[in-house]
Amino acid sequence: MSSSRPGFRHPDLAPNEAGYTIKDYEGGASTLCAGCGHDSISRAIVQAFFESNVPPHQVAKISGIGCSSKTPAYFLGKSHGFNSVHGRMPSIATGANMANKDLVYLGVSGDGDTASIGAGQFIHVIRRNLNMIYIIMNNGCYGLTKGQDSATADKGSISRKGAPNLLESIDLCEIAIQMGASFVARGFSGDKQQLIPLIKAAIRHKGTAVIDVISPCVTFNNTPQSTKSYQWVREHSEATGTFDFIPLQQEIVASYNPGEIAAITLHDGSIIHLHKTAEDFDITNRRKSLDALEEAREKHHILTGAIYVKPDGQDTHDLLSISDRKLNSLDKEDLCPGNSVLQDINDQYR
């Protein structure tokens, strides 16, 4: 019967700069349908964290409910994890982040988990700009309950059931930008060349980094008339530009014509390079980003790549002036410094 993945990896594959092998970032064997886009996203996550030299134990992966939310079992097997309640991943992530802001928070959700039951949580975590990566594995259907159209299914899209979807769809990237997200991107599970750098940039970004990844459901929503099928996405995707992520430590060797490239420096000094395809597109301009999304939508195109980036935003801790020390390191003496401190404070008001 179906075997687990063999323990051997390519002998030429060296450990990363942090000394970890690719296996240290992998998880258990997937139980999703063969060909599920989510497996490709899982693999992209493994590759991005491996290439980013993030120690696996410095990552917390948190998910809700759904096919997408099962995937944390299939990557980062040595990281912290919490498979939470349907649509409530942002709350759990917020709590964890409050307790220990030093970890890399990776939220994994689906279109049902985010756009339906968890829509409220989604918009409010973005408003607070919680420092996390928020990946939506978006297949436009409820795969775990036999493929009903989800809130991100485009109007008119036809899944395996055969009937066109009657309702308007929610564009999660547009909502994210409107809610003040500081990093918004759209990827496609079938294009890791684009997806891996997007995740790597999201890892380094401070604030909520939303990546809406179109991820075809091979079982229920991969018909030629579905706008979330492999074929449709390949034929209708339009990239905002070729995307490079250059970590801080890495020397920039390539030289570009300045007219063709937008360089955005993240808070830690890492740089995003965008080789633009559209001349007047500026991904740091919120209105232009929204326009670009709407224009693509009118043309029945799917805009992919980095869509909006605001690198210098304040995250939840900054906004709420929370202690520089992570809260879980504060002990009783820090929290109850004693009567004399209280007296000093009171004296200030006398």
Binding site: R5, F8, R9, S30, G35, R43, N222
Partner: peptide
Amino acid sequence: CIECDACVDICPTNC
């Protein structure tokens, strides 16, 4: 082939 990358992702030795 529908180019879903499932084989690429599962292959333990990146062949």
